[in-house]
Computed example of a mutant assay.
Amino acid sequence: MARQKFYDTAIKPERAILVGIITPGETEEQTKEYLDELKFLVETAGGETIKSFTQKMLRPERATFVGTGKLEEIDAFVKSEEIDIVVFDDELSPSQLRNIENVLQVKILDRSNLILDIFANRAQTSQAKTQVELAQLQYLLPRLTRLWTHLERQKGGIGMRGPGESQIETDRRLILNKISVLKERLKEIDKQNETQRKNRNQLIRVALVGYTNVGKSTIMNMISKSEVFAENKLFATLDTTVRKVVIENLPFLLSDTVGFIRKLPHHLVECFKSTLDEVREADILIHVVDISHPNFEDQMATVNETLKELGVIDKQIITVFNKIDAYKPADFDPQDDVPPLTLADYRNSWMNKHNSPALFISALNKENIEEFRALLYEKVKAIHTQRYPYDKLLY
């Protein structure tokens, strides 16, 4: 009887290393936090981070982002550990990308490209897919020449320059035409969305906003009693989800939006502005904060900065500090036998005083949800009675 052969058919995650620089305005702790987030992005994309490399510099090296010595150190590690991808925490210029690839001879990604890859994998609706494709093409356009370096490596540069250049020009025209088509398609989708929003205009609108992976979708499921996709990965939600919610006798619309993140590529923000129209047109914003994250204050600042860019920072905002079940103070010592903070402790904290109105909840454990629903009801009711003073619904 012939011996059976068994093969491992499981897809092994690509092995990645991360690279970041520490500039004079940053501390090593901040850089570590940034690389931890980059590691989470790699995991979300399906990769496995093996090691991180950092270098203190006044500014990125113009040709290779990091210094020559550091690049040689990275190259030695890539070859000895059979690394598949090297991911840089900042956006690389086309020349930096080309020069680094020539040295390391493996796949090189920067933060923008990695985020675009995750968005492409997560996009579900026609609008999200169109937005992501547009952002990818806008990212690709200035980097087109590097795609032809394989021709030089295979057959040398002489004799290939003319056809290569003409092919690049052809590709550039095709991409520009495709970008134009996608922009027109997005305009059509925006018109359809605008019509849908006009049809819903009589209801008060509430939008969940916040950093990525803070629990917005879990809150959406809890308040609206619906099943919105939620998981412990970055950018689990790309498409804006809108649900009709009724608290007591008062109906309103609740929307869940794409999470914000540090260094979100500008062209991605531009492409997703139509998705964020739900934020612009909302009457109330619920800023969800993951209080258990060690740097939640920085995340809050990133969200507030993005809301300023969208011109909505002056809207009514309810700050909801989520995940109180997992919160640990900055000076927490696991050896100390200290009881967890109570709701009274949270209400007396600076978080409550500087973010009025503020709430402290655990969406996962459904802790303090009734207070959340009561406050939301009061805020929606106040706008409803002002906008529709003769509506008998509330009396």
Results as ranks from 00 to 15, higher is better:
Arg153Tyr: 10
Asn249Ala: 05
Asp391Tyr: 11
Leu141Ala: 08
Ala120Leu: 07
Asn201Ser: 15
Glu133Ser: 11
Ser80Met: 10
Ala358Asp: 09
Val288Pro: 03
Asn348Val: 06
Asp325Lys: 07
Asn365Gly: 00
Leu186Met: 09
Ile108Met: 02
Ser80Leu: 12
Leu176Ala: 07
Arg122Phe: 12
Gln196Lys: 15
Val66Cys: 06
Asp331Phe: 08
Gly311Ile: 10
Asp391Leu: 12
Asn221Cys: 05
Glu188Cys: 00
Gly46Ser: 12
Lys39Tyr: 01
Gln335Ile: 04
Ile261Leu: 14
Arg172Ser: 12
His293Tyr: 11
Val87Lys: 02
Leu176Asp: 01
Val338Leu: 15
Glu26Tyr: 04
Ile189Arg: 00
Thr218Trp: 02
Ala63Glu: 13
Asp8Met: 09
Arg161Asp: 04
Val338Asp: 15
Ser224Gly: 12
Lys155Gln: 07
Asp337Met: 12
Ala76Asp: 11
Leu141Asn: 04
Asp277Tyr: 09
Lys308Gln: 10
Asp239Gln: 07
Leu182His: 03
Tyr211Pro: 01
Asp283Tyr: 06
Leu253Asp: 05
Arg153Asn: 10
Ile50Met: 07
Asn232Gly: 03
Asp283Ala: 08
Leu114Ala: 08
Asp256Glu: 04
Glu133Ala: 13
Met351Ile: 14
Thr44Glu: 10
Lys107Thr: 13
Leu264Met: 14
Phe65Cys: 07
Asp314Arg: 11
Cys271Leu: 00
Asp283Asn: 15
Leu238Ala: 02
Asn355Tyr: 13
Glu305Thr: 13
Asp277Glu: 15
Glu227Gly: 01
Val228Trp: 01
Ser292Gly: 03
Met222Thr: 12
Arg373Leu: 14
Phe360Asn: 13
Leu144Ala: 11
Ser224Ile: 11
Gly156Pro: 03
His354Thr: 14
Gly164Val: 11
Leu310Asp: 05
Val246Gln: 12
Gly210Arg: 01
Val214Trp: 02
Leu38Met: 13
Gln167Tyr: 04
Leu38Thr: 12
Thr9Tyr: 07
Asn121Val: 02
Arg146Gln: 09
Gly67Ser: 13
Met220Asn: 01
